[in-house]
Amino acid sequence: MIEVIGLVKQITDGHSNKKILDALDFHLKAKKSVAISGDSGSGKSTLLNILAALDNADKGVVKVAGLTLNNMSEVQADQFRKKHLGIVFQQFNLIDCLSVWDNITFPARLNGLPIGPFHNDLLEQLGLKSHKHKLPVNLSGGEQQRVAIARALSHQPSLVLADEPTGNLDDNNSQVVSELLFRLCKQLGLTLVVVTHSPKVAAFADSRLLLQQGRLHAFSNQPPNQTSNLVSA
């Protein structure tokens, strides 16, 4: 599903170039979930940007759902995101002028997919039936994040990216939201990449990786002694 080989991404910091991602390799099979953690500035957002075709790699190959993301044109990138990608943000980021239902069905309608029992089912599974016609401003944080999840799944994308999905939630809601996210992705057979600091959230994933010094390592409680270039989950 995801194939990343030798990914290099540099940023220009004043006079010098700094490698944020340094020959990173990453493979994730379809329908699997992985939790990625790392320190601040380790490059998690950069990696997600590249996986979401929001940014281009300087070197290396990035393939998602069989599509090579390197040097995609803007239009191709837009199409890719529309069809194959669902994103759950930390800040919920719902379309505040649309109702819950319109938010959820937005990506599906964008892709011209029919709206039907699937979406109603999503609504119900996420406990949002009674909020169907409400505006996001009238929902609590947990409810908003559930809407965000439903929206991310509504067009059944190949890949779901979640960036600190429980970052703004309390423990209870974190638990609920994490469980829902992972379960639904499993249920629908979607590939899921979650960036999180929370071990509780990471515990739901099939595998866990640590992004450190520009490369992914298998996660362990001990600092890695040897770097492993190739990590598959």
Partner: peptide, 8 residues
């Protein structure tokens, strides 16, 4: 947000 959802 809309761009992230694939709107050109």
């Amino acid at each position: 947000l809309l761009r992230s959802m694939g709107v050109g």
